[in-house]
Write a protein that binds this DNA or RNA. Structure first.
Length: 564
RNA sequence: GUGCUUGUAGCUCAGCAGGAUAGAGCAACCGCCUCCUAAGCGGUAGGUCAUCGGUUCAAUUCCGAUCAAGCACACCA
């Protein structure tokens, strides 16, 4: 892709004859908000200092000096110099590039094949997946796709919540009231039911807690029955999780959860002792982090048990050794910011300079009715329910709008799930949002289905056009209607880069909406298949839009059906 | 109390390393299918960019304070 902005910078640099260097000029160049102000603009304010003249005058004078070859127009408007690109040249370049590269368009080598483990999704065994888990899952997945697109090697790690005292309670409850068949029929719901009942009953019977502790102790000591039960609960739960992941089209590279690090924590404690970092405080072992302005990290409880951060330290070290990462990401809610600061600080204290490569990718909280979701308080929004609702709504929509559609079931799935996933990704990660089913499964306006629809329309035209393959040709399009769409196509690579460096999938989602919007507008105002000499170029534009929309959606983890 | 995050139209949000008249979507109202999928397109209406200061030729954007909301603050994860 030709860097047109660079071209503008060079043209200005030559004209000002060194009074401002090209790099500074490049960074000053902006994209005007209105199309009638050109494609790039240079504000002359920056030159006023050196030239001791009013910016308006500088702009006017500079326009005279600028070599306008290769531009459609260069003009001064007030203190700005506005550059209009040569539309034919631009369209020919961009369309050929997209059509040649197809879904590789926008790929770039930022990552040099380095590994990037991503801690994501991480539901708790025996508990249902909620909308909260969806965020971590889809944001992590989109970031993984973006990393792969830029030649990193993402490693998607599902750090399952598969250890802890709750398993003691679960086993205890299962032994008292459980049955194998019941669990098998509907594993998570049933296990959850036992768990809830346990909590209800242990209010009056505190001795239950002792039993639970006993069971967990047995599990920790490797007791056969306890281990078998644990494995069974885990695998039944995982089966159910994987079913949802399949629906979302997401695969993991590792399911090493909390339990995986059980035998790796001793080393951490030893290392901390060797380095003289452990201190006793109220009977507990801590690492003092006051020089980082942080609370002390609790490594061992006063009863000797390890804690969350101990496990995460072990996991961090394990990942460094296993993947030799250049970045290690944790897609975990904003509320855990403090924990990751501590984690990094402890690693730093241990002398691991790679602690700087650990990045917490926080995201905002989902609430329901303004309140935090809580399994115990019954404020849960089950992910499966939301997906099912979305799919059946999409199905209804298809029956209304396109009853003769082939493959209805698959499309309903793609559209329904796409709506939910896209909704979760379209806004900035850190924004909190209150769950509103109607909002999530909306198919109109700035939504996933809107983008999918634009793609489906493009595909429909291509089918009608009857071109199976568009090769390299001259696609000179100077049509004003098409211009915005063409410019957006050219922005794709840059957009991907921004999304990756900011770990921000919403950048791609917004881009997809913009492109779909520009294309829908074009579609409404232009007769694409009209037989004239730019027909081939228009079809090339439609084909390019289809390629880029599909790729943008793929990066987000959203399918792009050919018809809907 | 301390720290982090947030505060833009009735609602949900954009605003890309400060710049030209602050933009969408939803909701409301009004138009557009003998023509490539109307899940679409167009129009009307709607804003002292929380408040007050500071830096700058220029601040919704950067800095500080204030107010408001959410989250976190050692033996949960």
């Amino acid at each position: 892709m030709i860097d047109y902005k660079q071209k503008v910078a060079t043209a200005i640099s030559v004209a000002v004859d060194g009074s401002l260097n090209e790099k500074d000029i490049f960074y000053k160049i902006e994209v005007p908000k209105a199309l009638n102000l050109g494609d790039y603009a240079f504000p002359a304010f920056a030159l006023a200092k050196y030239l001791h003249k009013a910016p308006q005058i500088i702009a006017t004078e500079l326009v005279e000096k600028i070599d306008k070859k290769g531009f459609e127009k260069v003009e001064a408007v007030g203190p700005y110099i506005n550059f209009f690109l040569d539309k034919k040249d631009y369209s020919n370049n961009i369309l050929n590039e997209v059509l040649n590269e197809q879904d590789n368009f926008g790929s770039q080598d930022l990552g040099k094949s380095n590994n990037v483990p991503i801690d994501m999704s991480s539901p708790n065994i025996a508990k249902p997946m909620s909308m909260g888990h969806l965020r971590s899952t889809v944001i992590g997945n989109a970031i993984a796709n973006l990393l792969a697109k830029t030649n990193y090697v993402p490693v998607k790690i599902n750090h399952l919540g598969d250890w802890g005292t709750q398993f003691g309670k679960l086993m205890c409850a299962y032994k008292m009231w459980g049955s194998e068949e019941e669990v098998k029929k509907d594993p998570i719901a049933t296990l959850l039911k036992y768990y809830v009942r346990f909590h209800e009953e242990d209010v009056d019977k505190p001795e239950l807690d002792d039993d639970a502790r006993e069971w967990f102790k047995r599990l920790e000591d490797g007791d056969k029955e306890a281990t078998q039960l644990w494995k069974w609960f885990r695998s039944e739960s995982l089966k159910e999780f994987i079913q949802i992941y399949d629906e979302l089209g997401i695969k993991f590279d590792s399911y090493n959860g909390e339990a995986f690090y059980n035998d790796k924590m001793d080393e951490i404690v030893e290392l901390l002792e060797q380095k003289n970092l452990l201190k006793e405080s109220n009977g507990a072992q801590i690492v003092d982090l006051s020089k980082y302005d942080l609370n002390p990290a609790l490594i061992k409880r006063s009863d000797g048990a390890t804690l969350y951060i101990t496990r995460d330290l072990a996991a961090a070290l394990y990942r460094k050794r296993t993947y030799n990462f250049t970045q290690s990401l944790y897609v975990v809610g904003n509320e855990q910011t403090n924990h990751f600061k501590q984690l990094k600080a402890v690693l730093k204290e241990m002398g691991y300079d790679w602690s700087d490569d650990i990045h917490h990718i926080p995201f905002g909280l989902i609430t329901s009715g303004g309140k935090k979701l809580s399994t115990r308080a019954g404020r849960v929004i089950l992910l499966q329910d939301v997906l099912n609702d979305a799919i059946s709504l999409a199905s209804k929509q298809i029956d209304e709008k396109n009853p003769s559609l082939a493959n209805k079931k698959q499309v309903a799935h793609d559209v329904g799930v796409g709506a939910v996933v896209f909704h979760d990704l379209k806004n900035e990660r850190l924004n909190n949002f209150d769950f509103d089913l109607e909002e999530v499964v909306r198919f109109e306006g700035e939504t996933g289905p809107y983008v999918q629809y634009a793609h489906a329309r493009a595909m429909s035209i291509l089918r009608k056009a009857g071109v199976s393959e568009l090769g390299t040709a001259s696609y000179e399009l100077d049509d004003n209607q098409a211009w915005e769409t063409l410019r957006l196509l050219g922005d794709f690579p840059n957009t991907i880069e921004r999304a990756v460096v900011e770990y921000e999938p919403s950048v791609i989602a917004k881009y997809a909406i913009h492109l779909a919007k520009a294309f829908n507008k074009y579609y409404a105002h232009s007769k694409i298949l009209k037989a004239d000499k730019q027909k081939a170029a228009r079809i090339a534009l439609v084909a390019s839009v289809a390629v880029v929309l599909k790729e943008a959606l793929r990066l987000l983890g959203v399918a792009a059906p050919d018809e809907m």
